[in-house]
Simulated scan of single mutants.
Amino acid sequence: MEGERVTRLLLLAGKQSMKKADFLAGRLETDWRIEACDPAADRAAFERLAPEAEAIVGGYIARPWPATPRLKLYQIPFTGHDFLEPEVLPAGCRVCNTYEHETSIAEYILLAMLEWEIGLSKTAARFRERSWDGKGPAEGPVHGEVRGKTVGIVGYGHIGREVAIRARAFGMNVIGIGRREQPTPDLLDWYGTTMEIDRLMAEADYVVVACPLNEATRGLLDADRLGAMKPTGVVINVGRGAIIDEDAIYDALKNGRIGGAVIDVWWRYPGRDEPNPRPSRHPLHELDNVIMTPHNSGWTQEQIDRRWVFVASNLDRIARGEPPENVVMTI
């Protein structure tokens, strides 16, 4: 209320969260005192601010943590939360993640399939270099099409649904598997649990990996499962690198046992000790049947804005005493 001292402290923890202080200040409808720090660079600031915070927005923060008795909300401004260490948070704290990446990633996946079939970038580069190359309009390179192809979604959820909507519009067949038993969604030709993954691997022209990483999915696509794919089949991984066995996929790609892969999520990432590692211990970058991107399949400005609008709305819910959305864990 006007004239009343604001006691709720919002801590933006980490380099990415710190950048959004002004954005949140302009979006929040409730009163918060916004502080920001990077725990990796200024541990003293984190240890001073965290005990007073009612909400923290951030990702992974290394131990040790100070006691945070007032903390009601740990808001992750992205989707993954496999890094979370619940024991550092106080009882009653709710952990929420943020989606809003589904449409961006679905567009990336459709682009990947279209590029694989049509080869637009390679054709354009060749035409620039060679012009007509002695061939007329109906004699140029023949390319494929996605119409009639089958896309199999491993982990049919938020992303999978958006992929299915777009794939259907292109005349594709869509199949999917997930953890829960449920009737086949209208967008799918068939749906099964993970018990039917081998069937999906065998039927799909494109296998889209969109499930979360956990103990059940780590190494889910191993040598046997990759071996069940069509020899022309393509894996598209937008989930997590470790869902696919690193040795097995390199072997399958190098020896032509599958058609190719489009990989956006990896086994190795930059760190303090190695700021620019290769994303795999194998030389995938030397293979011509791999499209590689730096974990940016969903990274559009529109998606970033949608996520932080959601973060602001969840902070408002907490301030008003309402339950937050996207709760992944209550401590």
Rank of each mutant, 00 (worst) to 15 (best):
E129G: 04
D222P: 01
A67C: 04
G298R: 04
R48V: 03
Y99D: 06
Q303C: 14
P212Q: 13
H101I: 00
D251L: 09
A106W: 00
V174Y: 04
D247W: 00
A40E: 14
S131N: 08
A125V: 11
L221Y: 08
P323L: 08
W65G: 07
M201W: 01
M229I: 08
V209P: 09
T232C: 03
I109S: 02
V146Y: 06
L9W: 05
D316M: 10
V88S: 09
A40F: 07
E100A: 05
P279M: 07
L12D: 09
Y99F: 12
P185L: 03
P283L: 08
P183M: 08
Y99K: 10
H81F: 14
G3I: 11
I165G: 00
V142T: 14
D42M: 03
A45Y: 02
P294D: 10
A112I: 03
L120F: 12
I197Q: 14
V235E: 12
A50N: 07
M113W: 02
E274M: 06
G160H: 07
D247Q: 15
E162Y: 01
I291K: 05
C96W: 03
L24A: 11
N97E: 04
E102T: 07
G271Q: 03
E100W: 00
L71C: 05
A204K: 10
G241R: 06
F78Y: 13
A124I: 10
R33A: 13
W308V: 10
V163Y: 01
D186K: 14
A242F: 04
T232N: 07
P141E: 15
I175Y: 04
V311S: 07
E286V: 08
K230T: 10
E286N: 09
A67M: 02
V6Q: 09
G219N: 10
L12H: 10
T300G: 01
G14V: 03
F78W: 12
G219F: 02
A202H: 09
H81E: 00
R130G: 02
G157I: 04
N296D: 03
E139D: 15
L73N: 13
A124E: 08
I249K: 11
E196K: 14
E215I: 06
I291Y: 09
R63C: 05
D245L: 04
M18W: 02
A106I: 00
P283K: 12
K122C: 01
R128F: 03
L226D: 09
W299S: 14
L114V: 13
V174N: 02
G260T: 13
V6K: 09
R272N: 08
Q301C: 00
A210Y: 01
T193F: 02
A62Q: 13
R33H: 14
E35F: 05
A210H: 05
E85V: 15
A216H: 09
H282L: 01
L49C: 07
W132N: 13
P141M: 12
L11P: 07
D288F: 01
A45Q: 11
R180H: 13
S131T: 07
T98I: 02
A21F: 02
I244V: 15
Y99S: 13
Y250D: 05
F310D: 12
G271I: 02
A25K: 15
T194N: 14
S17G: 09
R307G: 04
G219Q: 10
E115N: 08
T150P: 06
I249N: 12
T68M: 15
A202M: 05
P279H: 12
P141I: 14
S121R: 15
P231H: 10
